Structure formats: structure tokens, C-alpha cells
Computed example of a mutant assay.
Amino acid sequence: MSVSLTVMTFNLHRDCGEEGPHSWETRRDMCLNIVAKYAPTILCTQEGYGHFGLSRKGLNNCSDEHCSIFYNMEQVEQTDGGTFWLSESPSIPASTSWGAAVPCIATWVIFQFKGVEPPGFTFQVVNTHLDKKSPRARRRGALLTWQHITSLPPSLPVLYCGGFNTQKESSVGRFLLGRSREHGVVGDMVDAWASARRRKSSKLVRTYHGFKGEDQGKIEKAKLLLKALLLCWDRRIQDLHVDWVLF
């Protein structure tokens, strides 16, 4: 049996109260239009607020960022879910470890497809946002989420989405893709972008570009291309994405 669904991971960049072309008031409609255009079954957001998932500060404090998971209720239904902190105390809200700049979280949901035969076909989505400051915190956070994934029944498919704040040729990327070890553990995931049969934008080199998009100077483009060539010897994964969908 095979099923098909569309998944989007989207770092909304929180509302910092700034004014100008990059303010949330200016970007909001554009973000809504992008989501409406692609109409994903599953939408994982970072630096957003609401729907399923706790804030970084816990159950009774919704003032901080979430790693929310939105979903099309006509296609899937939620059967279970939760949030844990990427720290040495995963069940303690707002906890931090390993030099992290802020509390980091992972939200997970188990979904069941509607109208699929045989009934009861389920899968899990994990959404995270790794620390932007500490490489060690990113590595240990990735290890913690991978340990969560491996604790699941082997027959349960998993989608691992989020803003990882690092490229796939980093230690985090190599670990999750099964190319290096972290504390004696090796990941075993596949990058959806690299394995996609068709891409909406084959020219997309990176997902963080400081609001510049494709409109960059020649020198900056040359530096970006050189960095991509130096980092990624395997042409199938030649990119500098910091936002991934793994499975």
C-alpha cells in the first residue's frame, strides 16, 4: 500500500516588533499566500504561535515560540502527541543544556489517514528548531530527537521537520543522515529534498538568505557557490539548506 501527502516546514521568523519591509505585518499575507498555494497536508512551523504544541516556556505560558504542527483535518486525524525539551531534562519546561542560547523543543504528533484502506494506517511527524548558537546543543538536540524516533515501533513511518540552523554537511547533518556518530549512535534518515523526483525551484541553494532571495550581488553568489562546492562533494545534496524535511 502507498499513500501520498504534502509536507511543508516553514520558519515564520517571529514578530520582533520591527518596522519596515521585513516586519511581520508586511510578511504575514505573503506567508499565508505561500501556505495556501501549496496547501500541505502537514505544516510544521518554527518561531510561530499556536495550534498543536507547547511553547518553549511550557504548558501555562503561551508567550514564547512554538514548534507547531498544523494539519488538514479532512485528510488526517491526530491520535497522540507531545512536546519535549532538547536538554538533559527533556520533561522540564524551559530547560536548557549544552550552552544553548534559548530553550529548544521538539513537538511530535501521531496521525492516522482518513479514507485509506486498510484503515488505521498511521505515521508520526516530529517538528523541531535547533539552537542557533551552540554546535554542541544542536548535536545533542539532534541525538535526543533521533532517540525519540528510534523508540517508536519500526513499522511506524516518521517525518522529521524543522529549522536546524546548520547545513547537512555539518556534524548534525552527517549524523542524522547516517554518515557519522554522535555518542556512539548513528542516524538513518533520508533528505526529502535530495531524493525528490521534482522540485518547485531547482535553483534554491539555501533557505536562509536574510530576505534577499535570489536577488544577490555577483560576489555574494560566487562566494555562495564556492561554499556549496567545498561543503558538498556529493552533488545529490549540494545545498546549504538549514530547514529540512527528513524521513
Rank of each mutant, 00 (worst) to 15 (best):
S4P: 02
T9S: 14
T9D: 05
L12A: 11
E19F: 00
S23P: 09
S23N: 07
W24V: 06
R27G: 04
R28Y: 06
M30P: 05
C31Q: 10
C31S: 13
C31R: 11
I34R: 08
Y38D: 14
P40C: 04
T41R: 06
G48D: 07
Y49P: 07
G50A: 03
L54H: 04
L54C: 11
S55N: 11
S55H: 11
R56E: 11
G58R: 06
G58K: 09
N61A: 05
F70E: 08
E74S: 14
Q75T: 07
Q75K: 12
Q75D: 06
E77L: 06
Q78D: 04
T79S: 11
T79G: 10
F84L: 08
L86K: 08
S87W: 04
S89P: 01
S89Y: 01
P90E: 12
P93K: 00
A94F: 00
S95N: 00
S97H: 00
A100E: 00
A101N: 03
A106I: 01
W108Y: 14
K114I: 11
K114W: 15
V116A: 11
P119E: 10
P119Y: 02
V125W: 03
R136Y: 10
T145G: 08
H148Y: 09
P154Y: 08
V158T: 12
Y160E: 05
T166D: 14
T166N: 10
Q167D: 14
S171D: 07
V172C: 04
H183F: 15
V185K: 07
V186I: 12
D188Y: 01
M189V: 05
V190F: 01
D191Q: 00
A192F: 01
A194W: 02
R198V: 08
R198W: 07
S201W: 02
S202N: 10
F211E: 02
F211D: 08
K212I: 06
G213S: 12
D215R: 02
L226T: 05
Q238F: 03
V242E: 13
D243G: 14
W244G: 15
V245R: 13
